[in-house]
Computed example of a mutant assay.
Amino acid sequence: MQAEIDQWFIREILPHEGALMRFLLRHWPHHDDLSDLRQELYTRIYEAASRALPHDARAFLFASARHLLTDRLRRARVVSIEPMGDLYPSLVPVDEVSPERWCSNRQSLWQLAHALDALPERCREVVWLRRVEDLSQKEVAARLGISEKTVEKHIAKAMRLLADALLVSTEDADIARIASRRRRPGSGYDQA
């Protein structure tokens, strides 16, 4: 069976490599990633062919390429809440924290807590286990009785919802600040 798939791959997929690379060049802005994209695509196609050979290899190749690019774009939009860099330099002794900074940090924490509370129950549970209790994706899946792919989907959905909620609350704060300036006499805004 393996030799049959190898022959099918060589005969039906590899002849389209030039057209595939032109397609990827046209549709993917990061040209450094093209060989990685091609390799990932070939892996997906080979694995799918081991389950069942597609009827139209060329159509299957380009449909798979579109799906891969869509997956990559989706992943690029997900906001990670992983800590970036070394946190120790950002720790400031309590004596040096200004009231404004303390209040701003409390407000940010409050916004994040409310955004977490607003998540759908399963998403919130997955985020809590994965990010707070620091369980692996596999451990979260086992504890909740779901697949690892489902854990990934819940994390992606939660990150999207959290980013949207935090963006909206930031925009609301900006609007409130502008509105309060309009109400103050001598603020420079016309009071309509």
Rank of each mutant, 00 (worst) to 15 (best):
E12G: 00
L14H: 02
E17L: 09
G18D: 04
M21T: 05
R22N: 08
R22A: 12
F23V: 03
L24E: 05
L25W: 14
H30C: 10
D32R: 15
D33V: 04
L34A: 09
S35K: 14
S35Q: 15
D36E: 15
Q39H: 11
E40Q: 15
L41W: 02
A49S: 15
S50T: 13
S50I: 00
S50H: 13
P54M: 05
P54E: 05
R58V: 03
R58L: 00
L61Q: 02
L61W: 07
L61K: 07
A63M: 09
S64D: 00
H67V: 02
H67F: 04
T70F: 11
D71H: 09
D71G: 07
R72V: 08
R74T: 09
R74I: 06
R75V: 00
R75E: 09
R77Y: 08
R77D: 13
V79A: 11
G85C: 09
Y88E: 14
P89K: 01
L91E: 05
V94T: 11
D95A: 14
D95T: 06
D95M: 09
D95K: 10
V97T: 07
V97D: 06
V97I: 15
P99A: 11
W102M: 12
C103M: 11
N105I: 08
Q107V: 12
S108H: 14
W110L: 11
Q111H: 15
A113T: 11
H114C: 13
A115D: 07
L119D: 03
L119H: 04
P120D: 04
P120E: 08
R122H: 10
R124I: 06
V126E: 03
W128P: 03
R130M: 03
